[in-house]
């Protein structure tokens, strides 16, 4: 999985962190989302689905 975060769009609402079933995401010291454990990501897309700010994206096609 490749998790892409657009920090400029992120408002730190914590929705993606709360809905991630594998605790892949967290908020950093600036209150923006960051990836803490990319290898745990199962690509369910819950974060991208409910991000109100279009700030996070999961690309399933692999790290070529």
């Amino acid at each position: 999985m490749i998790i892409k975060v657009n920090a400029r769009f992120c408002k730190g609402c914590n929705i993606c962190v709360a809905f991630c079933p594998k605790q892949v995401l967290a908020l950093d010291s600036m209150g923006k989302v960051c990836v803490v454990d990319e290898s745990a990501c199962i690509g369910c897309g819950q974060c991208e689905l409910r991000c109100p700010d279009f700030a996070i994206r999961i690309n399933k096609e692999e790290k070529a």
């Binding site: 400029r8 769009f9 408002k11 730190g12 609402c13 914590n14 929705i15 409910r50 991000c51 109100p52 700010d53 279009f54 700030a55």
Partner: peptide, 16 residues
């Protein structure tokens, strides 16, 4: 973008 809606506002989800 980014839009002016508050952090956590559901309008972004509905617009998407």
């Amino acid at each position: 973008l980014p839009h002016i809606w508050c952090p956590g506002c559901g309008h972004g989800i509905a617009m998407k």
